[in-house]
């Protein structure tokens, strides 16, 4: 597999890199624990996402905006957008996805730790967003597969994520809204522009 070069500088660089790298300490126990914790979370999120993705895609196709309501709100976790659930839209009443979307909302509400916030997302054209699993969801650009993961957090953590804690990094941290904020991270080749696009699709209401 390795193609050793004849040039002596190659082998010197190889040796120098190995010498330096081997001096770098590795905390394997910490990596195992951290990887398992994050991996389990990812796996759970993935299962939840897979379970709801068909529904979410159908909802997005119908122009549905999902909405996480205030705790105790009369509405369950998602609400139809004007194009899906109100008379503003000529196509709304015929949307075949309205019922299953609304049915899924209670599950969303049940899964949210902090339900006393309201965030509506109108996915940009070509993007679809999954239902939240816990307080997280993912938006995916259908043409490229670029993905942006969004996590809703309590405002108490805002300063930590906004540069205060080097262990808590995110590519984009929104402002606080009614005691909450969102962190956005790119996956699958997503760019900063993708992250910005998704962030700009948020509408917070208090």
């Amino acid at each position: 597999m390795n193609q050793k070069s004849d040039h002596p500088t190659d082998s010197r660089l190889r040796t120098a890199l190995h010498d330096r790298a081997l001096a770098e300490p590795v905390d394997v126990d910490r990596l195992v624990a951290g990887s398992l914790t994050c991996g389990r979370r990812l796996r759970a999120r993935r299962r939840a996402t897979l379970g709801g993705s068909a529904l979410a895609i159908a909802a997005v196709a119908a122009g549905v905006v999902w909405l996480v309501p205030h705790e105790g709100s009369a509405e369950a976790g998602f609400a139809a957008s004007p194009t899906a659930g109100t008379s503003d839209s000529p196509t709304a009443s015929s949307s075949p996805t309205a019922t299953p979307t609304l049915r899924s909302l209670q599950e969303v509400k049940d899964s949210l730790d902090a339900a006393d916030y309201s965030l509506a997302i109108d996915p940009p054209a070509g993007w679809s967003c999954t239902e939240p699993a816990d307080d997280k969801f993912t938006c995916t650009q259908e043409s490229t597969g670029h993905a942006v993961a969004v996590t809703i957090r309590g405002i108490a953590q805002h300063d930590d994520y906004d540069g205060g804690d080097p262990d808590k990094t995110s590519y984009l941290v929104t402002d606080g809204h009614d005691g909450h904020f969102a962190t956005l991270n790119p996956y699958a080749g997503a760019t900063g522009e993708d992250v910005q696009t998704i962030a700009e699709s948020f509408t917070w209401s208090s």
Binding site: D27, L31, G34, S35, C38, G39, R41, R43, R46, T169
Partner: peptide, 13 residues
Amino acid sequence: EDLVQSAYAQAFA
């Protein structure tokens, strides 16, 4: 550490 943990987490998932 963050980078490799993230990679392992994705591998585990």
